[in-house]
Write a protein that binds this DNA or RNA. Structure first.
Length: 489
DNA sequence: TCCAGGATAAACACGT
DNA sequence: TACGTGTTTATCCTGG
């Protein structure tokens, strides 16, 4: 496990400490010298991983802040947990200070433990939230801690880099569990750029925001990771969209140009498309604009937004008419975008080819198959030939009519008739209402799109991949071969 | 060269 | 009407 200065790191599997039933002295009669050497090597490696400068045989090393894994029940809430900050020089902090006095020839334990006040295990908390301290021998409590769950250690920040750090609420919180390691990965996703990375916790880089900082740009984490980190720090892992904007503007290079709104679009895109994030509703005035980290994400971290995953928990949101309308509108927007892009290409093509008009170019390509072989924009105003039908659907959203795409077609066989829709023109409002009333059975187990248990793999539907993820009935279809992307959650 | 991941642009509907 | 928000799709770029 790699750890970094200023970071809390959880060590669930620390090297074995010397036997200390009574004290911290190695019983040489019970342990072979080989074992001792192995322990020494393990501890040297461990120390080197958290403090290279002091991981030298014979040198003094003091573990700064450490605590047993496991928390008082009162603090055992998911996500961040309050944890008192201490300095390594504060002997009353309740954490053990280790002084490895290593000697290969020493018959006594290289690990001498002082007798400062120390927290018991399991730890208990005072009413004011502080950690209860008890006068106990270090070695007993510390060793028990190791036996029962390892330690969490704050790696010391070297003086030369300490100035680059400032303290935020992250320092007042402690996130524990498997996600901690992932969180650390996120925070330091690129080791090579760590020193200049905005992902470094509480990192303040004096080059931040300067022009031409290519290295910082290169280390700028992706939106999903930024959002993840932002929400991890947030109270209840929930923030408004505006707060997310502000945080990213502060902590990322992506919002270099405050006038540009493109990055905000990307933020919204990521929030919508990544299953690690969910809308938080029912929060009074902020309703509708709150975003929250899902439990899955808190536990397992965040993965690529391009996987277009959606948490099945959001299914209920998509069951509403509003969600359906949004989905349809989004699809139409996307398709219109595609048509617009093609028009632009057509224009360029027309300009470059004096003999071929854009319309003719489109007609030629329409019959050739391939990328834009058949799509007819749902928005007729965007389509050069709105009434021309194609040889095959380019989008799962749009299906040919039966006369052109008979039921014998393998895909059509599995497509419920009510889903064989096509927009040659934008459906009038009345048509949309009709569609909603007549074709959506919200009581069906399959959700919005009917009982999907009857729909075998590969069946096109009005739903996108993201919507598949929101559909219980489609969960069975989430094999790699059946979905464009696999859902990990 | 191909593919996956990430970023970005664009479009749309809805709400305020 | 303007703007913010949420959703979706397409495309470009980059690195493996």
């Amino acid at each position: 496990m790699e750890v970094f200065p200023g970071q809390w790191a959880s060590f669930d599997h620390l090297p074995i400490l010397p036997n200390n039933d009574n004290n911290c002295v190695i019983d040489q009669q019970q342990q072979s010298s080989q074992n001792t050497q192995q322990q020494d090597a393990e501890w040297s490696g461990f120390l080197r991983s958290i403090e290279p400068e002091h991981a030298v045989a014979g040198s003094e090393f003091e573990l700064p802040d450490c605590k047993p894994n496991g928390l008082p029940d009162a603090m055992a809430t998911p996500g961040f947990r309050p944890f008192p900050m201490h300095t390594s020089s504060d002997s009353s902090c309740g954490f053990p200070a280790f002084s490895p006095q290593h000697s290969a020839t020493q018959s006594m334990s290289p690990w001498q433990v002082s007798t400062a006040p120390m927290m018991t295990y399991p730890p208990t908390s005072n009413p004011d939230g502080s950690w209860a301290q008890h006068q106990q021998t270090h070695q007993h409590s510390f060793h028990d801690s190791l036996a029962q769950g390892g330690l969490c250690i704050q790696v010391p920040t070297p003086p030369q880099t300490a100035a680059l750090h400032h303290r935020s609420n992250l320092d007042q919180m402690f996130y524990e569990g498997p996600a901690q390691a992932h969180f650390n990965e996120i925070m330091h996703c690129d080791d090579e750029h760590f020193e200049h990375s905005a992902m470094q916790p509480n990192f303040v880089d004096d080059t931040f925001g300067t022009d031409g900082d290519d290295e910082a740009d290169a280390a700028d984490p992706c939106y999903a990771q930024l959002l993840y980190r932002c929400l991890m720090e947030a109270p209840e892992h929930t923030l408004t969209l505006k707060e997310l904007y502000e945080w990213i503007a502060q902590h990322s290079q992506k919002a270099k140009d405050p006038k540009s709104r493109g990055w905000q679009n990307s933020v919204r895109h990521n929030l919508s498309m990544n299953a690690a994030f969910e809308k938080a509703t029912g929060n009074g005035t902020k309703k509708g604009s709150l975003w929250r980290l899902t439990d899955h994400a808190m536990r397992d971290g965040v993965i690529s937004t391009t996987r277009y995953r959606k948490d099945p928990k959001r299914k209920h949101e998509r069951k509403g008419l509003l969600a359906l309308k949004r989905q349809i509108s989004g699809a139409r927007g996307g398709q219109a975008t595609r048509a617009a892009t093609r028009r632009i290409k057509d224009m360029h093509q027309a300009r470059s080819s004096p003999y071929t008009s854009a319309a003719e170019h489109h007609r030629r390509h329409r019959h050739r198959g391939g990328y834009d072989s058949g799509f007819i924009s749902p928005m007729s105003v965007h389509s050069p030939r709105p009434n021309m039908l194609s040889s095959g659907p380019a989008s799962p959203y749009f299906f040919p009519l039966e006369e052109e795409y008979p039921m014998q077609h393998p895909s059509n066989l599995h497509t419920p008739p009510q889903l064989q829709l096509r927009y040659d023109a934008p459906p009038p409002k009345s048509a949309l209402e009709k569609f909603e009333l007549q074709h959506i059975d919200f009581n069906n187990r399959g959700g919005l799109f009917g009982d999907t248990d009857d729909m075998p793999p590969g069946t096109p539907s009005l739903a996108t991949d993201a919507s598949f993820m929101s559909d219980d009935g489609m969960q069975s279809l989430l094999s790699p071969a059946m979905s464009r992307e696999q859902t990990i959650f």
